[in-house]
Structures are given as C-alpha cells and as structure tokens.
Design a protein around this nucleic acid. Sequence first.
DNA 1: TTATTTATTCTACAATATAGAATTAATACG
DNA 2: CGTATTAATTCTATATTGTAGAATAAATAA
Lengths: 114, 114
Amino acid sequence: MSKSRNLGEFEILVMAALIRLGDNAYGVTIRQEIENRAERAVTVGALYTTLARLEEKDFVASRMGEATPERGGRAKRYFEMTPKGRAHFERSVSSLGAMLKGLRPWPKTLRTSA
Amino acid sequence: MSKSRNLGEFEILVMAALIRLGDNAYGVTIRQEIENRAERAVTVGALYTTLARLEEKDFVASRMGEATPERGGRAKRYFEMTPKGRAHFERSVSSLGAMLKGLRPWPKTLRTSA
DNA sequence: TTATTTATTCTACAATATAGAATTAATACG
DNA sequence: CGTATTAATTCTATATTGTAGAATAAATAA
C-alpha cells in the first residue's frame, strides 16, 4: 500500500475521459477522447499502464465487456471511477482550478463554462 | 537536450504561481502561493528541484535579487516564465481545460471566471 | 485451421515528484 | 573579528508517473 499522492497530469486527463464517456469507457474510446479533445497524442502503452496503476490505487475499477461483439476482436475492458478516485480527482482539479482561476491573458479554450 | 513533453501537474502549479506573483516570485513566495491557494503541501526540495528543471528546459529564467535585504538572510533568486515556457504552459492548460470543460457535478472552486 | 479484426498486456526506460538535511550568504552585535 | 541569527537556496536520494511500441490474446469469419 503506497502513500496517496496527487494525481499526475496524464492521470487527470484519463479520469476526466472516464467521466465524459460514462459507461462507454474502454481503452480505445478513452484514447480517442483524449486525442480528440485535448489534442494530444496518446500511445496505447501509456494509456493502459496508467489505467492499471489507477486501478491498483483503487481510483478506478474495471469489468470485462460482454462477449460476441458481432464483429471479431478481443473483449473490451470497461473502466469507471471509484468514489475514492473521484475524491482524489476533485481535489487535484480544485488545486489546479484555484491556481489557474482568473489568469489573463488566457486561451479561450480554458474557460470552463458561463 | 531532452525531448519536449507535457508539463507535469506540479510544474503547472508552479508556472501558474509565477504568473500570479509577477516580479515577486521567488522560492518562499511561490511556495506560499501554492500552499495557500491550491491548499496543497509543498516541500522546499520539491519546489526548488522543479524550478531547476524548468530552467534547464528554458521554460523559466532566474536572476539573483539585490543585496542588502535590510534584515539578514541569503539573497533571493527571482523566477519568471520565458516565452517558450508560456507556450508550453498554455498548451498544457488548454488540454486540461478541454477535458474538464463542462463536467458536472463539479466543485465550485473550479470555475475559473464568469 | 488460418486469416482478419479488435483490443489488451508486457517490458523497459525516461522524466517528474517528493523529502528533508545540509549549506550558503547576509546582517547584528559583543 | 568571531559568533549568533535569519532567510533562502542547494544537494542527494528514492518513489511514482509518463511514454513507447512490440507482443500477445481473443473473438469472428471463411
């Protein structure tokens, strides 16, 4: 049992993707979500390694998808955040938000909402 | 010359502190700014190590402060972001912002502005 | 049983994060 | 001058996170 630390930058992106994807979050969709939204390259190794570590820390949980996906290919492993994971996620995001709040000049894409 | 990667989570907090502090950014004030705003512990070693790495990457620049600080103690080393550092900072923050934008439920402290 | 498709797992190495003791440098004062 | 006090930085070591891409696995189709 390792000491609980803050989430890393990539871990935050992955956790955010889990929330966005809901019950459709598995390796391929998580990767697409981050590449498309964050406009940032994500290698498969980086993603699965990070997901495995988050699961070890009990920040996410996974379940294997149903068989017979109608078109070949290995079964999907779906991921979701645990309550513990969400608590850490919100703490990390709060810290970032507090430090970034009100900074100008600022890229428009950063503003989270009205 | 190492390959340019994304900023780490702590690096982002430090860079944000630099912007917030303007020309009064040095070790002690940077540390206070992060501890107070982000509500997150920061050890001196962690901070200076990170600042040194950011400087190696030419993301920040430093200069020694004037002598005679009127009340003893070693000279301060002031830090500021370089244009290169700012570009990387904005890219990292954009990625985070894009992934976090619109997520609910959300801690109130995250909303950056109106 | 072989090919095709889809997805995950494995292995290794690089960079960032973290801690706190040690050190340095300036002023104050007998 | 020499020593104490104060303020700040530097040093050293280890743990965790980030990154890559080849290898493997598992399902369907022919």
